[in-house]
């Protein structure tokens, strides 16, 4: 890695973490405590941006899948893998913050409400992607299978949403936000987006380096699977 690149990457992470710290400060001291939900309402600032970024990551898996099937270049597969990991991480966040919210609002950690079910199915879909990846030995086969799965899983997302809409709902349809709440939400949105994009990029970079190393090992006959 070149010197400039190293500085740029370090700068990016400093910026991201600063944004997160700022957002956390806003959530703690600036945004008012919600009348009904109390302090727990504040997980919402993490919940919603994480959900939006999760859709972004799922969409990236889809795009990478299409790209791979079209061009058959290894870097699309690496991008798909990196995005899927971040999608699982974000959907775990969405699921957990959703559960915390549910505990406060309805007094139970889990209820088969449409949105919790939706988050759970999405989490399962992308965890399955990671398990599928880990089970295929051949690199080319793995890339094709994961590309197809990534496409199909993304097509599944709106259907999961529509199907859960049929379930009886106790979720708040809309939440009224005061101005400081909007500001805090915006800060969290920026911080989570920066962190998610950074994580995808970092995972992608690691995968590229691993691939380069494997190719080098194959070429020189040193290390790697014989």
């Amino acid at each position: 890695m070149g010197g400039t690149r190293r500085i740029a990457v370090a700068g990016y992470w400093v910026l991201s973490l600063a944004a997160l710290a700022g957002a956390a400060w806003l959530a703690a001291y600036y945004a008012p405590v919600d009348a009904d939900m109390g302090v727990i309402q504040k997980v919402f600032y993490f919940h919603l941006p994480a959900a939006l970024c999760m859709f972004g990551a799922c969409g990236l898996v889809f795009v990478a899948g299409v790209g791979y099937l079209w061009q058959r270049e290894g870097w699309w597969d690496d991008l798909s893998h990196a995005s899927a990991r971040v999608a699982v991480l974000l959907s775990s966040v969405v699921l957990l913050t959703g559960m915390i919210w549910g505990k406060q609002a309805w007094g139970t950690w889990w209820t088969w409400s449409p949105r919790l079910t939706f988050s759970l199915v999405l989490w399962l879909l992308y965890v399955a992607y990671l398990v599928l990846r880990a089970s295929i030995g051949s690199e080319q086969k793995r890339a094709v299978v994961c590309a197809v799965y990534g496409i199909v899983a993304f097509l599944d997302v709106p259907l999961v949403y529509l199907s859960t809409k049929l379930m009886p709902d106790i979720h708040p349809e809309s939440i009224e936000l005061e101005r400081p709440m909007w500001v805090t939400l915006g800060a969290w949105m920026a911080a989570v987006t920066l962190l998610s994009a950074g994580l995808v990029a970092a995972r992608y970079r690691v995968a590229r380096l691993e691939r380069a190393h494997e190719e080098w090992a194959l070429r020189t006959g040193m290390g790697g699977p014989a």
Partner: peptide, 29 residues
């Protein structure tokens, strides 16, 4: 896909069950 990859059993279930959940949810509701 899984047959071409000579994958062990059980994996197919893990792949198709989550994908088919919209069908299960919709038909039960």
């Amino acid at each position: 896909v899984t047959s071409a990859s000579r994958l062990q059993g059980g994996l197919l279930a893990m792949v198709v069950f989550p994908l088919s959940l919209p069908l299960v949810i919709t038909s039960t509701q």
